[in-house]
């Protein structure tokens, strides 16, 4: 079945400040989109707004998933519809094992609509373990990972791989990867890139948000977009990524000077305090 995430003239505020100034984008099953832009261009705001972060307020525009309005839905409801966000800064949850967390998450997403809405019945332990083991193996992740506390004391690379494992287990329809390459060395980017590639079949729609083009050499996008000043200023194919690689962001900034001025200089992607 074909799925479609449609973003239409999306405006969003953070702390009363407008960061997204009219984003238009459509992602369908099987398509890989790259969203590139310099720091402060609104990339992470777009990711968080699409997933329903309570601090990001949509002021106008529309986001629909298979025609259904997403804006009023909580993050868990969006996840149940098939939306996924691989976080730039995944949160640590001490004391909660990866396995327990994943079992509840997978059960919540899969049981959606098939059971009483007030009850989350967990998928059987055997079945879950088998699937987890299989997917960890496929992604080359050590089994001991499942017993560790979620992102607690993980290295940067481990956190990103944990995000990819969650992606593999939750089997979303549309996935947003927010700066999945940030903070990783070249080897780690390759491992993560190859892992993501394995998960991309004919069905998954992907939005890769990135500052640097290097992740894109592993996850080759069909569509490349450049975001500046909170809106998509250029869209094209692979050649756009190549052009950026060659010329850097300066050329783009120069070309869209008026738009870039809108970019709030004081706003840089805020790192949560406990990262």
């Amino acid at each position: 079945m074909q799925h479609q995430l449609t973003i239409n003239n999306l405006h969003a505020d953070v702390n009363g400040e407008e960061i997204l100034t009219g984003v238009d984008l459509t992602i369908r099953s099987g398509e890989i989109h790259a969203m590139m832009g310099p720091n402060g261009s609104g990339k992470s705001t777009l990711a968080n707004t699409l997933m329903g972060h309570p601090s990001y307020k949509v002021t106008s525009g529309a986001v629909t998933f298979d025609g259904q309005d997403l804006i009023e839905l909580e993050a868990d409801e969006r996840a149940k519809m098939g939306l996924f966000l691989a976080f730039q800064y995944p949160m640590a949850i001490p004391g909660v094992t990866m396995a327990n967390f994943l079992r509840l998450a997978v059960s919540s997403v899969r049981n959606n609509g098939t059971s009483d809405s007030t009850t989350t019945s967990l998928i059987p332990m055997r079945e879950f373990r088998q699937e987890l083991r299989q997917k960890m193996k496929k992604l080359g992740i050590d089994e001991a990972f499942a017993r560790r506390y979620l992102n607690d004391g993980f290295s940067g690379g481990e956190k990103k791989r944990a995000e990819i494992l969650q992606l593999a287990m939750l089997e979303p329809k549309i996935a947003i990867l927010d700066e999945t390459d940030s903070g990783l060395d070249i080897d780690a980017v390759r491992i993560v890139g190859e892992s993501v590639n394995q998960l991309i079949g004919s069905d998954l729609g992907v939005l890769v948000i990135t500052h640097y083009p290097r992740l894109l050499s592993y996850i080759k996008p069909d569509h490349v977009h450049i975001i500046l000043g909170g809106r998509v200023v250029e869209s094209g194919g692979w050649e756009l990524a190549e052009q950026l690689e060659a010329e850097g962001y300066d050329a783009i900034r120069e070309k869209y000077k008026e738009v870039d001025l809108d970019t709030k200089e004081q706003y840089t992607n805020t790192v949560p305090a406990n990262v």
Binding site: I93, A105, V109
Partner: peptide, 23 residues
């Protein structure tokens, strides 16, 4: 938000964090 983005309800997410705290 992190837990909820994985489909876990707010209540289950809070419970999970508390249970992790006393683990």
């Amino acid at each position: 938000f992190y837990l909820m983005s994985r489909g876990i309800s707010e209540e289950d997410a809070s419970t999970m964090i508390v249970n992790g705290f006393i683990e």
